[in-house]
Amino acid sequence: MKVSLNKRILNRNDECAQKNKAFFENHGVLCLNVISSPGSGKTTLLSRTILALKNKLKIGVIEGDIKTDTDAAKIRATGAAAVQIETQGACHLSAVQVHDALKQIEAAEKDVIFIENVGNLVCPSAFDLGEKKRVVLLSVPEGDDKPIKYPGTFAGADVILINKMDLIAYIPFDLDRVLTDIRKINPHARVFQVSAATGEGMQQWYDWLCDTIA
């Protein structure tokens, strides 16, 4: 006998994501889910952003990694509150993990919560964490073919940051191709070219962030 269900598979994650979303809305907190490959500069981006905006905004960070609290320690060094989730092998963060982490950084008191997802261009995009906006990083050394090879992640982005632009003179990277490919799969994303290491181009990202809060 066959039974027809048509039920969402990630139902439990999605329900918790809705709870997180309601929490952020009720407390006027802007939550951003930051996704990229390992090593593309997510932590450097967040550290620099916190240092630039810490007199203006109260920022908290939820860090996701398979092992170690290295990233949370780097964030705490900027003075911001950070909580580390060690996923012990899981390739993405889930809404439940984020929900549990919120209490630990007094999220309700913050203006912005960044969730730095596990470095991975595939799996994190399938899991709604209750964020308001999704930020995807692509760094120049990863190569110009990434948006078209990982369309699911880039299609779901509200903002795409092309990072490590300071290295573009040294690495074969066809910027026009990247911009064309991004337009194909995500015509609506805001795209900023930045270097989180040198600060180049970061002002437009800060402006977007402040405008999105207001």
Binding site: K2, L5, R8, I9, K184, P187
Partner: peptide, 19 residues
């Protein structure tokens, strides 16, 4: 034209079970 909007992508669904 390359000006278009996506129709929302299909969600992950458990459609049917046979016993």
């Amino acid at each position: 034209s390359s000006e278009f909007d996506f129709v929302p992508d299909a969600p992950l669904l458990l459609e049917e079970i046979e016993f």
